[in-house]
Design a binder for these strands. Structure first.
Lengths: 317, 317
DNA sequence: CCCGGAACGAAAATATCTTTCAGGGGTGAC
DNA sequence: GTCACCCCTGAAAGATATTTTCGTTCCGGG
């Protein structure tokens, strides 16, 4: 018999990438998930050998999917012909298609058992669980942050930075890295930006700010004195001030013209709050950056490609 | 060659891939659902023809699962050999197994929800859309990274760091911030760690490493000379070396005992690759950290609370 | 005891997958 | 600018897997 699905040289379907239609679900021949039921239904009409095969298939779809005709025949103590006959009886054109369906079924039921990722990370969690849980938590943090972000405030902050003479960013500890990340990006699109993690230098720099400049403070707790102080100075010098914080009611906001709220996820002993706050802050910072890049596209685009090219030589062949 | 998948009575899988270039080669277990991610990760190292095949496969898993080698080759305008080569590159023993995985994936996503809108960010997108798209993309990046992360390699890296005399981390540019992030965390649980972004200092420090020490290089491109060089030195001094890179076939891996792969998302003009690579790298680093914290819980727990308390009085009332 | 029918498996026949090999195109060296 | 080299690529040979064919065996009934 010829290949059931696609003739080699001909033009079976002229549509390569288009998604296959979902509405017309399983018609009749390819049973999607009701395989076990089908086996029970058809069992009476099967011969002994075929029943053995059907039983094996229904019992361990995943395992059988990994077997060839010969393998399955050997496993069930029958012959290849019997296996093919069974596949036919179950409604498939041949063993090949049964096997394909089997693989799908296996994947399906494997995804069925949802890992309890809502749990906290325990000391004895296997490493695979740690990965799953962390990824899940960070995804959750991102969703929360996006949902809680005030786009009006963000828009105002974007406009301020896009039109600023210079932008100073304050952050210490983990937030300091976020501050640097933002700074790096702004520099890449040709803006003048600087990150400060040294409180003293931050304050002395803040004094130089004036109207038209922007100061951004990043602090999860909203009460980090080392970051509030320079922001206060900048505020009093007339600069536009922005606070990125997880505590929109914290002290830092009293000197902030615009407040961007980051989300606060539950923390645990093994998962310090710094982790999710960092994720959240980075998303906010990314949004800010992209917004600014949009607003200054004329200059941002060439600056981006220039910096990209400048780095090209630093890569080995 | 005998049946690639499984002899009758024995274990189904467990077949390591054909060749391993170096001792630290990822076994690359048959990817279950991480296919799209894998395609993106490996795309840069593919040839044009192979990319066409990979694209078709990633674009329409269900459709491709129904095709034979010849059919897929015809559809993509390539040859059977190329299709098989692509399957190999994606980590499967041959096309047969890729097809099987494809069937599983198809069943998987048919049951799952619709894949969301994946439009690029445009210059004139309203700020709310920017937030939504960025959040979605970063979530996707996290999922891809988690799916593509080799837990065996991660476990090995965790063990190495947990037992290390000292740990050095190399990273420049955006990866430098990730390196600092990791370092900060490790310091917090009482380990000795240092981040280097100055290539010269990194090398001079690497010379001091010896067996029992760990060196970690972080580079998205996998070919950043400034980061490879210190890793090479550390490798030759006998330290355990780890590479965190988006290019598991890049130059950096030749000096790495363990390779942790980050995901590569499509980039656009307004969304530089650095953004998603950073997200991906951070997740990997977080996993590494939590793993190490688990392994050294006896000392990590008190160290964590100590550092927490030490910071408390830096917060304003 | 012999006959008819169905089940079953061995092996041939076919299709499919994998490997090998040689040509073509591009790149770096000189 | 030319040459040599290497890698990509596809055609075809070679190896495997699947399907079909066909003969044998096993029962139950006449």
């Amino acid at each position: 018999m010829k290949e059931t699905s696609a003739p080699p040289g001909t033009v079976p379907q002229g549509t390569p990438p288009p998604q296959s239609p979902h509405p017309p679900s399983a018609p009749a021949p390819p049973a999607p998930a009701a395989l076990a039921a089908k086996v029970r239904t058809l069992a009476p009409s099967m011969t002994r050998s075929m029943q053995r095969v059907a039983e094996a298939v229904a019992g361990d779809p995943a395992g059988c999917a990994a077997l060839t005709v010969t393998g399955l025949a050997g496993l069930t103590g029958t012959s290849e012909a019997t296996v093919v006959r069974t596949a036919r009886l179950l409604g498939y054109p041949g063993y090949r298609d049964l096997r394909l369906a089997l693989a799908g079924l296996a994947a399906h039921q494997q995804s069925g058992r949802a890992p309890a990722i809502t749990t906290d990370i325990a000391v004895d969690d296997p490493i695979a669980d740690v990965v799953a849980k962390l990824a899940y938590d960070e995804q959750q943090t991102l969703a929360d942050t996006a949902a809680g972000l005030d786009t009006a405030q963000l828009g105002a902050a974007v406009a301020a930075v896009a039109g600023a003479r210079r932008t100073d960013v304050y952050g210490v500890g983990a937030s300091g890295l976020v501050a640097q990340d933002l700074t790096q990006k702004l520099l890449r699109i040709g803006l003048i930006a600087q990150a400060h993690s040294d409180p003293h230098l931050a304050v002395t720099n803040a004094v130089q700010l004036r109207a038209g400049d922007v100061a951004i403070a990043i602090t999860h707790s909203g009460s980090t004195g080392d970051v509030i102080e320079p922001l206060r100075v900048a505020f009093e010098r007339g600069a536009t001030t922005v606070a990125i914080t997880g505590r929109p009611d914290g002290p830092v906001t009293q000197y902030a013209d615009h407040v961007l709220t980051t989300s606060t996820a539950r923390e645990s002993e093994l998962r310090p709050a710094a982790m999710s706050s960092r994720t959240s802050q980075l998303l906010v910072v990314d949004c800010l950056f992209v917004g600014v890049a949009q607003g200054t596209y004329e200059t941002a685009a060439p600056a981006l490609s220039a910096s990209y090219e400048a780095l090209a030589h630093r890569h080995r062949r």
